[in-house]
């Protein structure tokens, strides 16, 4: 329980630090939303001041941060400076796309990556192993957007009209349509991740193959499948799980690129749009949510790890103590 509390407090502090960083950065930039909103001719000092006062942008930024936190506690992310719409609504309309993308690509990379890595380790020094090793080594170096651009070229030019390569269909509208529009972005996001997971799983599986516990489990008469899943994979996954947590954080950043390539209406495209418009409340909200997803998945990875290998609890607590002591 102590462990859980420590991890959660670390999570909250980290997310707050990221928000504060984003807040401070944004308010370093002069030429705020008011000038952009009014245009060059109408941006008289009085009009700018009026808009700034309306959105509370005339106060010093640390005070704005406090006000923002206070409204955050009541679940209000603010009002968009550009459109006047509620940021809550803007986020609510888009978060589904990004979350679906991140979850789908994580599931795909873990399932395929662990399978490939385990297969490669179990069949080490065979043709299968060398194929998997070489393919993963190459795939790690391919820039994520290269897969995406390749898909767009393939289905947007060579095989035009065969498969949707742009836009989005919400799952409430059509499950099949949603799946079709999800497939290419998910593959783009997960292909490099699959390679990384497979590479790590392979090397950590290889360490367990000659472990005494595995040797004894085999001589005890456990079936090969049980030896593999209970005695090898479980042990081999401990170093892989934190990597998966970090990969989740990376995919959150990757969605910005993927949403741009495939024209998806998610949080990443909202971030780019709001940065262009100097829509500070929206940028702050997107940063907050992306930080929550990214940091949250690291914390989740630690918790999963404690479940897989209870010895990690002590290690994690000692680490947490070194920080908070």
């Amino acid at each position: 329980m102590h462990f859980l509390l420590r991890r959660l407090s670390g999570f909250v502090l980290t997310v707050l630090a990221v928000s504060l960083l984003g807040f401070g950065l944004l308010h370093l930039a002069p030429g705020g939303p008011a000038e952009l909103l009014l245009g060059v001719q109408e941006a008289t000092p009085e009009a700018v001041a009026a808009i700034n006062a309306q959105y509370g942008l005339d106060k010093p930024w640390p005070w704005q941060f406090v006000l923002w936190l206070r409204s955050l506690l009541s679940g209000d992310l603010g009002t968009s400076v550009t459109t006047g719409a509620s940021v809550n609504d803007m986020i609510a309309g888009r978060i589904g796309v990004t979350v679906e993308l991140v979850v789908a690509s994580l599931v795909l990379s873990v399932v395929v990556g662990v399978t490939l890595g385990a297969a490669s380790a179990l069949r080490r020094a065979t043709w299968l192993d060398s194929v998997i090793r070489n393919v993963t080594m190459v795939a790690v170096a391919v820039p994520g957007f290269a897969f995406g651009l390749g898909f767009v070229y393939l289905f947007g030019y060579v095989l035009e009209g065969v498969f949707p390569h742009r836009g989005w269909v919400p799952i409430e509208e059509s499950v099949a349509g949603n799946f079709q529009h999800l497939l290419l972005p998910t593959l783009t996001l997960s292909l490099p991740a699959i390679a990384i997971v497979a590479k790590m799983t392979r090397s950590s599986m290889l360490e367990t193959i000659n472990a005494d516990s595995v040797w004894y489990a085999r001589s005890w008469g456990h079936s090969p499948w049980r030896v593999m899943s209970r005695f090898m994979l479980r042990r081999a996954l401990t170093p892989v799980v934190p990597t998966i947590g970090l990969l989740a954080a990376t995919s959150v950043g990757g969605t910005v690129v993927v949403e741009e390539i495939f024209g998806l209406p998610g949080l990443g495209s909202l971030l780019l749009l709001s940065l262009d418009n100097r829509d500070y409340p929206a940028v702050n909200a997107v940063m907050l949510i992306m930080a929550i997803i990214a940091v949250g998945s690291s914390v989740l990875a630690d918790l999963v790890n404690v479940y897989i290998d209870p010895r990690q609890r002590r290690a994690a607590t000692v680490r947490a103590k070194a920080v908070t002591a």
Binding site: T14, V18, G22, L25, L26, L28, A29, L246, A249, T250, V252, G253, G254, V256, V257, L271, L272, L275, D276, V283, M287, M290, A291, A294, V295, S298
Partner: peptide, 16 residues
Amino acid sequence: IAVPTILLTVVIAGVL
């Protein structure tokens, strides 16, 4: 390390 590089870079570069 927890903050995605792309997110950080895009926001800072956008501000600059």
